[in-house]
Design a protein around this nucleic acid. Structure first.
Lengths: 345, 345
DNA sequence: TTGTACGCGTTATCAC
DNA sequence: GTGATAACGCGTACAA
């Protein structure tokens, strides 16, 4: 059962390939009804499906983009991806998804392979370690948008959270609620990981701006697996801060595990606030005050910029999206009657 | 800056296209070192990248598969997808991801377009409403694996949770813990949605097998948005069951929201158990007893089967994967000292 | 060891 | 209105 091609259709309909091609591309203008009918019948009878590959070869467009992320399992990624896919669906584009696990080597390989596959553009959550390659992509005028992180030295469209503002919102709220002893929990400082760096630095600035000194012990920048021991140490020496700012969902989970282990009351024993609006924030007890990233908007903008790049010239632009502060109960004023808090003695 | 092709490389290296092709395909056997070197230099100098599209056209393989899911935002989907992508990465395959939102029309369109794009196979979370199309795919010997649901009348590889066993595990545990008044929370019954149907039916069977009668009021099969009012009604008439079985993560969230609203104590006021191991299960208070789906294994098997189909003949097979029971605190025996329970009066 | 010529399934350009 | 014919970029017999 060989694959049926345009030639087969043409033969059966007693016309030439070109006529069939015209028909498929709806260039009916000078086509007799009779011919149309015969072609339609032949297509139906042979169950003919045009081979998009051949068309792409000719037209130099695959209607496919590559999206390269660290890990599709992260909520941020999933949501951005969903928004991108929605946009692509509207344009009859397809999305190839790749996970790098933040490994530059995997990233390089994916970019190379997708490039070879002639994808029409890339949306990348960059590891930041393939600067030369990113440069080559730009030289080749390959549409490219960075999300979540930018890359120093590459002038490309980038869609990022306004990290500084996000931290400011959180710190300011804690201060307003009367907290002075505020800790931070984050993964290790790494210069090329923009969001992390920006958030850690913004935390220092924000405290200083409010006239609060930064207690070194309370700034935990550690691999996620080692965060528990750092928290334990503080607990054992009775030096817990009053409030903790978790810079993302992963670190938040560590904090909550710690809280549960010691049956601390939130917010009375420890106020908690985080960036990333985890799905259980509102059903957790107490409900969690969070600073949400506008993930769907990020994906939408990334896709829009990519399409703009594909349709001609646009100059690279940096988008800093506003975080959304979602007040719930986990960082309310201490001692305030907290309906949903839960303390056992 | 025209695209550089093999011909350009050949010219610069002073050899013919075929020699370059040989080189690229590592058929070095009869090639002089000198030639190799010249070709390598030319490739480097011109920044040549082979056009995989043209190759695919010739070789009838795109090294790309299509994965069509309801919604990438669901945890099940994301995890299965991650496993699939990992397998594909090992085989140098790429994954195109599509969201149908359970809309048959979108599904049809995606299948058509990806088919036209010559993908080498499909992994589908089927809406179940495109039976004729699935059949055509099989007739065309297009590799195809269903995940999460099967489709009646289509004899294809399918990877599903052993839903009946999952429900049995949960019900049996609840009974063992002394619960007799057990409710179910599920989306509306829909015949073609296999997991839902199987779980609801298995619930009835399991209760009967344990000599417990099924209280109609306690079996809530309702659109997620209407679940709250059903629960409210029970609460207001003081007819809550002792325990609730949530058949998936979405319904679990509704139950937990309800529990929070009325400040019920889990498990003393209401025991809770669910299928789908939500990420916060262990940090929630009390920690949640769940029945986990082996999502990564599901993805792995789906991909393996797809590759097997691509490599020749295999007969369609149904895989029923064992659920994993994860005992935590949310469905412990009533009155038992529950370290992590939390009750305020 | 290398080169020639053709095929893959389309589309675009002109003739007719 | 329709049909040849030449691309598109690569793989591959087969010839040299």
């Amino acid at each position: 059962m060989r694959k049926v091609t345009m030639a087969d259709v043409a033969k059966l309909a007693n016309v030439s390939k070109s006529t069939v091609s015209q028909y498929l591309n709806k260039r009916y203008e000078y086509m007799s009804e009779e011919t149309k009918r015969r072609i339609a019948e032949a297509i139906e009878e042979l169950q003919y499906r045009p081979n998009v590959l051949a068309r792409s070869l000719k037209q130099k467009s695959t209607a496919t983009i590559g999206v390269i992320v660290f890990n599709i399992l992260h909520m941020l990624t999933t949501q951005v991806l969903r928004a991108i896919e929605d946009m692509c669906q509207q344009h009859d584009f397809h999305v190839i998804v790749c996970n790098t696990d933040d490994d530059p080597e995997k990233e390089r390989k994916y970019i190379d392979m997708l490039w070879a596959k002639q994808v029409d553009g890339f949306i990348i959550f960059p590891t930041g370690k393939n600067v030369e390659l990113y440069k080559k992509m730009q030289e080749a005028r390959l549409p490219l948008v960075f999300v979540d992180r930018t890359v120093a030295g590459i002038d490309a469209d980038s869609v990022l959270l306004h990290n500084e503002r996000a931290v400011q919102l959180g710190v300011q709220y804690l201060i307003e609620q009367g907290y002075k002893h505020i800790g931070l929990v984050a993964p290790p400082f790494a210069p090329h990981v923009i969001p992390r760096t920006e958030r850690i630095e913004a935390f220092h600035h924000a405290l200083r701006d409010h006239g609060v000194s930064v207690e070194k012990e309370w700034v935990i920048t550690e691999h996620v697996k080692r965060i528990p021991e750092r928290l334990e140490a503080l607990f054992n020496s009775n030096k817990l801060p009053e409030a903790i700012f978790a810079i993302n969902d992963l670190t938040l989970m560590e904090v909550l595990a710690f809280v549960k282990k010691h049956q601390l009351a939130i917010p009375n024993d420890l106020a908690v606030i985080s960036i990333d609006d985890v799905p259980f924030a509102s059903i957790y007890t107490p409900s969690l005050t969070t600073i949400a990233q506008p993930t769907f908007e990020m994906g939408k903008i990334a896709a829009e910029r990519l399409f703009m790049q594909m349709n001609g010239e646009t100059s690279p632009q940096m988008f800093r999206l506003a975080p959304m502060f979602i007040e719930r109960d986990s960082a309310k004023k201490r001692g305030e009657k907290n309906e949903s808090s839960c303390h056992r003695s």
